[in-house]
Design a binder for these strands. Sequence first.
RNA 1: GGGCCCGUAGCUCAGCUAGGAUAGAGCGCCGGCCUUCUAAGCCGGAGGUCCCGGGUUCAAAUCCCGGCGGGCCCGCCA
Length: 650
Amino acid sequence: MGTQLGNPFADLKRSVGAALSKALEGLCLNAELSDDLESLIEEPPRREFGDLSVPATRISKLCDVSLDELLPRLMESLKGLEVVERVEVVGGYVNIFVNYSVFGARVLNSILTSGLRYGVPEGLKSERVVVEYISANPVHPLHVGSGRNAVLGDFLYRLHKFVGNEVQRRYYVNDVGLQSAYLAYGYFKLGLPSIPPHMKPDHYLGLIYAATTTIIDIMRLKKALSRAEGSSDLSRLNEIRGELDSLIGDLARIADAIPNEVSVLSERIASDEDPESKVMEVLRGYERGDKNFMFAREVCNKVLEGIQETLNKLNVGMDVWDWESDLVWGGEVDYVVEKALESKYYRLHKGAPALFFDDLTNDPLLRERLKVPKSLEIPPLILRRSDGSTLYTTRDIAYTLKKFKEFSAAKVINVIAVEQTLSQAQLRLALQALGFPKEAENLIHYSYEMVNLPGTSMSGRRGRYVTVDELLNKLVEMVKTIMSERDAEISGDQALKIARSAVKYMILSVSPSKTLVLDLKKALDLKQNSGPYIQYTYVRAKSVLEKVGVLPQGGLDLSKANKEPLKTLLFELSKFPEVVAEVLVSGQPEDLVAYANNLATIFNKFYDVEPIAKEPDEGYRALKVAITYGASVVLRNFMEIAGMDVLDRM
RNA sequence: GGGCCCGUAGCUCAGCUAGGAUAGAGCGCCGGCCUUCUAAGCCGGAGGUCCCGGGUUCAAAUCCCGGCGGGCCCGCCA
C-alpha cells in the first residue's frame, strides 16, 4: 500500500497507524487490534489538544499492557515521524501535533497537482449506477416533499459522477395508477380543455385532480351519511359530518382558483351514478391501450411539461423518462406475472394472485443481505387485482429489471420516501423470489423522511400543498429585496441561482432520516451555515486569486505554515477527499455540508486577519495564495456535488 | 395491536454506528469591527434537567430495559 497523493489526510492517518503498530510490536498480542489501529485514531474535541489523538487507555486495555509501559513506546515511535512536530500526553490520550511545514507541503502539493480533481477518492473502481428519483405522480405540481427528493437524488447523481462513476438519472412516470385515472376522468368530464395561458399546466391540472377526487369523496361520504342516519351510532354520524365539512372546505378553496371548472365538474360528476367505477373504466381502458383512453397519457404529459419547467428552475436534470404504461403495453409486466405464477412462492391470497415471502424472510442471512429490517413483517404481495389490472409494486418489479438491464447497472438507487419502506422491501424479496438475486441485493432504497410546514397538513388529493415553484419564487423575491436594501442591482437569473442554492443547502444539511421542518421565513438564511455563505466565500477566494493572476509555481515558504489560522485551514483542506469517500458510503449529505461550512468559516477567518494578495513577503504570499487556491477548489467541488451554482461575483 | 424513525439551547440542526477530555454550530437576542484583497464577512456575550425513569460501566447525550411525546407503515392506493 503506497502513499496516496490525492488523499493527504488518509495518508497521515496511515503513517500514524503504522507508527503505532511498530510501537506495539511484540508488546501487544491482540492481532485484530494491530490490523485496525488506524480506526482508533481520533480527532481531539478541541484543536488546542492537537491535530490527532490516540486513546492510550483504550489500547492499554485492549492489549492488556500497563500505561506506564505503553506510553513511552507510543511517544517515541510517533516522534520518529517526519510529519509529527510534537506529542503530548493528557488524561490518557496521546495528542499529536502535526508539523505543518511537512504536512502543509503534502496537502498543497496534492491540491496543486490534482487541480479541480482534488477530492476524487483514489483507488475506486468505476461503477455503473442508476439513480431513480422524483418520480412524482404526474397529477399535480412538485411540492416541497418532491423537492426534497429532487435535491437528494440530484446530490447522489452528482456525488457518484464526481467520484468517477457512470450514472444515469431516471424518472418513473406513473401514468397507469388510480391517481392518473382520477385526473384523466376529471379532465375528460371537463371536455379536455386547453390550459389557461396564465397558468402552468401542472398547477392547473393539479387543481382539476384535487377537485375531481374531492368531489367524488364528498359524494361517497354523503352516501355514507344517509346510511348512517338510519342507525343510532351518533359518534359515527358526527365523524362523517366532520370529514364532510372539511372536504367541502377544501373544495371551496379549490373553487377560489378555478370556479368555473369546479362548478362544471360538480355537476357532471354528479350525473354519473357511480363515478368511482367510471374511474376504474378509465384505468382499465388505459391499461389495455385502448385508443379511446389515450387522453389519459396526454394529460399526464401536460403535467410533466410543468414539472420539467420546475426542474429546470431548480437546475435538476434527468436523463430518461420511463412511462409506466410502456411497461404494461410492452409485455414486461405480463412477463413478471407469468414468472411469478411459475414460482414456488406463488399462491392465491383472498382470491387474488400473490407472492408469499415467508420462506425467504425466515432466513436471517437473506434478510440481512436484502436489508429487510429484522422485525418487519412482510405481508404477501398481490400481483393483480381481481379484475386483472396490475398493481404498483408488480409494475415496479418489471421496471427495476429494466433499469438494471438497459444501463447494465451494478447498482440501482431508488430515492423514495420512508413511507414506502415496506413495498420497497417487498420489491427486493420479489426479485429474489423470481430468480434475480443480484438485482435484489443491489437495489438500494435511499429513504428520506417527510417535509413538514408549520401549521399545514399537505395532501395532493385535497390540493393542499406548497409547491417548489412557490418556494423558489418566494426566495427569489427575498433575495431581490435584500439586494435592493443594499442599493445593489441583481439580475433575476442571479437571484434564482442564489435562491435555489440556498434551498439545496438547507435540504442537504438535514439528515434524510429526520423530518424536515421547512419554515418559509427562515428557509433563506444568507448568513453563516447557508448556501449563499458558501457561494460568497468562494467568490472572495476567487477574487483574491484574480488579483494575484497566476498560481505559484513553487517557492512556497512552508516554514510559515506552522501558525493559525493557516494550520487549521491546511488541516481541513486535507480532509476533503476523506469526507467525500465517507459520504459516498454513508449517503449522508449533512456530513459534507457541515464540512464545507466549517472550511468556509476558517477561510473567512484567514481572509479577515491575513493579507493575501497584498502580502509583501514573496514566499509567504505564495503559500497563502496556494492555500486560497485550495479553499476555492474544495468549495467549488462541494458546490458541484451539492448542485449549487458556482458564482464568480455576488 | 405490531413494526420502523425521531426527541439535544427560544427556533433549525450536528454529535449517538465503534461509551471517555469543559455537549457543538447557525438563526434569533445583546455588544464591538468597514480610508487596506467583496461587511452575504469577522470578533465577543448571554442562552442547555442532552424527553423521563431504571440498568451496565471507573466513565453514558452515546449501550441495554421500561415509559412518555411526535411522525410514518401494516390496502385488490401509490
